[in-house]
Amino acid sequence: MSSWEDRVAEFWNTADDTDPDVVDRMRALVDERPADDAAALFEWASVLDFVGREHDAVPQYRAALAAGLDSERMPQAVVQLASSLRNIGRADEGAELLRDLGDETIAGAAAAAFLALCLRDAERPDEALAVALRALAPTLPMYGRAVTAYADELAGPQPA
């Protein structure tokens, strides 16, 4: 029999948000774990988010974070929680979470992308553009320094 983690990975490899059984299939996996299992709480939040139930996902993400997620799932949970908060009209709160996340690398530039989206929805477009440009700058071998300078002009220098 496959491990729980393998079965969760397989679930996500085949998940379809139009499948009427997708939530029930994840519920069956989650029910295999203790009620306070951080990974199970995260996966439950993720499937609720996946099917557009962000209001229901938010408290589950918070419970997963409070339960102590591992170093791989924790940054994903923060990014996904921030995105859900943005989708339910709490973009400022999402932006704050993403700023607190710092420079973790598991989610790559996703944190910056979702921070830019949160800032835009929070009516801070110059700051949003600066975040996006700073995330893009390292990929520009010829113009990275110039793009970073323009980002600094838009929102001021990044804190060290």
Rank of each mutant, 00 (worst) to 15 (best):
E72I: 09
R33P: 01
G108P: 03
R33V: 05
R90I: 04
M26I: 05
E5C: 06
V79R: 03
E43L: 07
A122V: 06
L81D: 02
L101R: 07
Q158D: 13
E96C: 03
G68C: 03
F42C: 12
V22N: 06
F114E: 15
D19G: 07
A109M: 12
V23S: 12
D70H: 04
D16Q: 07
G144W: 02
A116E: 08
W4H: 06
A39Y: 06
E72Q: 13
R124Q: 14
A113E: 13
S3A: 09
V47S: 05
E10W: 00
P157G: 15
F114G: 03
T14M: 09
R27W: 09
L117I: 10
S84A: 15
S83Y: 10
P125S: 11
Y150Q: 08
S3C: 06
A95H: 04
E5Q: 13
L65F: 05
P20V: 07
D100R: 12
A91G: 00
R124T: 03
V47C: 10
S71W: 06
T148F: 02
D6Q: 15
R7E: 15
P159S: 15
W4T: 08
P59N: 14
A137I: 01
E10N: 10
V58H: 00
F42V: 10
E153Y: 06
S2H: 04
I88C: 04
R120P: 00
D16R: 11
A155E: 09
W4S: 08
M1R: 12
D100V: 00
V8W: 03
S46G: 14
A9V: 07
E54F: 03
D21Y: 10
Q158N: 10
D24I: 06
A38L: 08
G89F: 05
A35I: 12
Q80R: 14
W12S: 08
H55R: 15
Y150L: 11
R90K: 14
V30P: 01
E93G: 07
S3G: 09
L140T: 04
I88M: 11
T105A: 12
W4F: 04
A64I: 04
I88K: 03
Q80S: 14
M1L: 13
E32Q: 14
E123K: 11
E54K: 10
E104F: 00
D21K: 12
Q158L: 13
A116I: 07
A122R: 05
L117S: 11
L69C: 05
D126P: 03
L154N: 05
G156P: 02
D92V: 05
A113H: 09
D36M: 13
E43D: 15
E123D: 15
A109N: 11
V8S: 01
E5R: 12
A151K: 00
A149T: 10
D21W: 10
L154S: 09
A66E: 14
A67T: 06
R27S: 14
V22T: 11
V30E: 01
L133G: 02
A91S: 12
V47R: 02
L117F: 05
D16K: 10
A38S: 13
R27V: 13
R27I: 11
A155G: 11
P34N: 15
A77W: 01
A130Q: 01
G144Y: 02
R62S: 06
T105H: 05
D37P: 01
D31L: 14
P125Q: 11
A113K: 06
D6N: 13
D152W: 01
V131T: 07
G89V: 05
E93Q: 15
V58Q: 00
